[in-house]
Design a binder for these strands. Structure first.
Lengths: 196, 196
DNA sequence: TAAATCTTGGATCGATCGTTCCAAGATATG
DNA sequence: CATATCTTGGAACGATCGATCCAAGATTTA
């Protein structure tokens, strides 16, 4: 067998985390390759060699956001068998994430991306993001309905779509500076309206 | 008195409409001054002389969007004394605007702008946009409550905030390709949950 | 250690970015 | 019509855009 080549001098996942945060906070159009170079310490060669062009990098960062940030939350919601309280907990965590801590005011990378006319590779991630959230909410609401926690006549699928949209709007408005209390009043209104 | 200067050779409002649509559809970061020059037929000199730099142009376009697109709809909602049916009509019109016709898939310029880290001058417009919509929805809901159309115990202010967020999310998701039927199911779920 | 091969730094590409500038054009007053 | 003053077209600015290229560096196998 012939001699083996050199190996990468950096941790791909670690770099992708930094890139994810750049695109998350400022979007793709407002983030230059130079910003990525500066933030990661990598050279252009390494970047293009490892990830391809800017759109590929954007798509990889979006994919990572979905899998590492969104999916765990959504899966926890779907696996939480408590019914309506599971939904309340989900929104509590969302409000906490969006309005306090390290990422306060950043919104959701998926929601932000929608306003950006993203490349097709990213649109696929966004579509998956929406589907997973909706499905998780529907699962929790189905349990709530089985528990008799919902008003009679509530359409679980419609309610799931409505709460999915509510989550998107929370993401957006938190970026615009909406307070946690203001956003929580909307969550309370929605859930109280669904409950018996 | 001394001689008078030349006058503008174009209609400022007309130009601003074209600029508004550029920024609305593609956002600020993805729209170059060259795009504005091409779309309006003006020269750079005329643009900078009339409107100032890009951020000023963006702010002027946002202001125009608020006053000419959003405000008329919101005012109609606020002046519609029918109660809950007024709210339904508002969302019907919103769905029609976002999912069909000339501007289908464009979303709402105000919602799109939030994801862009807009300059302070634009943030002021966004803040006003939110306040006006919320107030109009609250007015309609107050009438609905007076009509006995709402469930007992519904907090009108919280419900108004919730429906405001729903409108934002409709704007966003319509841009991502959500169907009118899907979005309508969310509206129906929200309004049915509030109604007696 | 020599060879093979991938990775890396960094210069560089043409294109486009937002903005400025100036001479030429246009218009209302005197 | 002469004059003053604004507007306009269009060249040009330095900076940055995303992307490419190549020589030098690094690493594993033989």
């Amino acid at each position: 067998m012939s001699a083996m080549p050199d190996v990468k001098h950096f941790d791909e996942a670690e770099v992708l985390t930094a890139v994810e945060q750049l695109f998350w906070r400022r979007g793709s159009a407002a983030t230059g390759i130079q910003d990525v170079v500066t933030a990661t310490g990598l050279s252009r060669s390494s970047l293009y060699n490892a990830f391809g062009g800017k759109d590929d990098l954007y798509a990889a960062a979006a994919r990572r956001y979905l899998e590492h940030r969104s999916r765990p939350m959504f899966d926890r919601l779907a696996a939480d068998g408590r019914g309506l309280i599971a939904v309340r907990s989900f929104f509590d965590e969302l409000l906490r994430l969006r309005c306090s801590g390290e990422y306060a005011g950043w919104g959701c990378m998926m929601a932000n991306a929608i306003a950006e006319t993203p490349p097709e590779s990213v649109r696929a991630v966004l579509s998956e993001h929406h589907a997973v959230l909706r499905k998780s909410l529907a699962a929790a609401l189905t349990i709530a309905q089985g528990n008799g926690e919902l008003r009679s006549g509530v359409d679980v699928q419609g309610a799931a779509e409505m709460l999915t949209l509510l989550a998107y709007a929370i993401n957006l408005r938190s970026r615009a500076g909406a307070t946690r209390a203001q956003l929580r009043s909307a969550v309370t209104a929605a859930l109280d309206a669904l409950a018996v």
